[in-house]
């Protein structure tokens, strides 16, 4: 999305690596469960990882995928199946689910990456829908029922994850490390090339970068991390269902990212937290939640294109400039 190429986005890219946000994040992760119900917090973390991984593509490569639910849902089914039917230990089930998402990302990526802009969005959406129908009909996914009562099992065959607090610690560590990884990728030379592609693809090509390879790498990376989120989510809720692979989910992650701030590192996580809390606390409103989500979407697109974190960063840099 070239329109995002605001001054803040590029200046933040040039800023040196900072450990401060991670210290804040670590403190939040540690004190979080004493303030908030851990299962809810785990849900928020899964969606935060989902949105941040999605943002590698939208925010830092400029590709709007409308089919990321395919990776979330597929990984969640595979890890649920591996844990429940094959009895794999949780870390192996998650790894397996993530690996399948990576393979799926590679296949869909190779088929879609040559298309641009709206074409790309449309085609990824159609592929995700293909995955949806596959999950609806395949034997191992349990159709409309999904895969239910998946045992969380024992981590490395030793530590039981049955207690929510132990599970939370596990999820928090995974989330923290993935987040660090995303941050590192964005601030690596590879991440710089991705941003160059976002800003001006033709120029990146003329500088000798194989743009398609970079885009494909970003796509696979994004799909893999989304898969990780999905695989963890299946174990947290002990459930894999069609919701995670539906196109509404693909839309929801776009909303989280847009609301939090496209092209900011922390934005999508903030957006995910807001949307998940909204769904949680407004659940009794029924269909109005969808309407509210739609309204937020429209408001973000019309007036608030930098998102929460983007706007805060703008305010911050303005204040520092004076």
């Amino acid at each position: 999305m070239s329109a995002h190429a605001g001054t803040t986005a590029s200046s933040s890219a040039a800023a040196p690596l900072s450990w401060k946000p991670f210290a804040v994040l670590a403190i939040f992760l540690i004190i979080g469960p004493s303030l908030i119900y851990p299962v809810f917090l785990m849900k928020a973390l899964c969606f935060a990882l989902f949105a941040c991984a999605f943002n590698i593509l939208l925010g830092f490569t400029g590709l709007l995928s409308f089919g990321h639910a395919a990776f979330l849902g597929m990984a969640s089914y595979v890890s649920a199946h591996a844990a429940k039917v094959w009895g794999l230990t949780p870390e192996l089930a998650i790894l397996f689910g993530t690996a399948i998402a990576m393979v799926l990302g590679l296949v869909i990526g190779m088929l879609t990456i040559r298309s641009r802009g709206i074409y790309f969005s449309n085609i990824t959406l159609a592929f995700a829908q293909m995955v949806f129908f596959f999950c609806l009909q395949a034997k191992f996914t349990g159709g409309e029922d999904g895969i239910q009562s998946v045992a969380r099992g024992r981590l490395f065959g030793l530590i039981s994850l049955q207690s929510d607090m132990v599970m939370y610690a596990f999820v928090a560590v995974i989330f923290f490390l993935s987040f660090l990884l995303i941050y590192r990728i964005i601030h690596s030379p590879f991440g710089q090339v991705l941003r160059a592609v976002r800003e001006n693809e033709a120029r990146a090509t003329s500088l000798g970068y194989k743009v398609e390879h970079y885009k494909l790498a970003a796509f696979v990376l994004s799909a893999t991390l989304v898969g990780l989120a999905g695989a963890v989510k299946a174990l947290v809720f002990q459930l894999a269902s069609l919701t995670d692979v539906s196109w509404q989910m693909s839309g929801e992650v776009v909303l989280m990212t847009l609301l939090g701030g496209v092209g900011t590192i922390f934005g999508p996580a903030v957006g995910a937290l807001v949307i998940v809390s909204m769904e949680n606390y407004l659940a009794e409103l029924g269909s109005w939640v969808t309407v509210i989500q739609g309204v937020i979407f429209v408001l973000c697109v019309m007036f608030f294109r930098r998102g929460i974190v983007g706007t805060l960063m703008d305010l911050w840099s303005k204040r520092n400039a004076h």
Binding site: A3, Q293, G294, F297, V298, C300
Partner: peptide
């Protein structure tokens, strides 16, 4: 939104679809 990236049009109409469907479902 005409002068912006066309993806914004897609996102906007997606939001509208959520609103319209939600209202009718309600």
């Amino acid at each position: 939104l005409r002068d912006l990236d066309h993806l914004y049009g897609l996102l906007l109409t997606f939001g509208l679809a959520l609103i319209l469907e939600g209202v009718f479902r309600q």
